[in-house]
Amino acid sequence: MKAKSFSLVRYDSDSGLVFDWKEPRYIEVPNDKDNPEAGTHQEQEHLYAKTIFVGGNDSIDNYIEVPEPAGQNN
C-alpha cells in the first residue's frame, strides 16, 4: 500500500476533555423509518475522541476541546 508523504501528528486531549469538530456536523435523520416520503431532519453529531491523528488535508484547527460528556464512551 502506497502512502503519501505528509506530516502526521498525534494529539491527545487534556484530562476530562475530548476533541469535537470546530465546525458542527449534522446528519440527516429520517422522520419515519418506514416512510421516506416523510422527509428528514438534521441532528448534530459529535466526535468526542480522546486522540486524533491529524495529517493530509486535515488540521488541528478543525477541532476544539470540550468537556467529556458523562457515559459517552462507555
Binding site: 502512502a3 502526521l8 491523528f53 495529517g55 493530509g56
Partner: peptide, 21 residues
C-alpha cells in the same frame, strides 16, 4: 491503540483522520 504511524498513514493518505476514544 498500537496502530503504527505507517498504518495510520494509509488512512490519512486516503483522506481519513483516525481518532480513538
Amino acid at each position: 491503540n498500537t496502530l503504527t504511524e505507517e498504518e495510520i498513514a494509509v488512512a490519512v493518505a486516503k483522506g481519513w483522520t483516525v481518532s480513538l476514544i
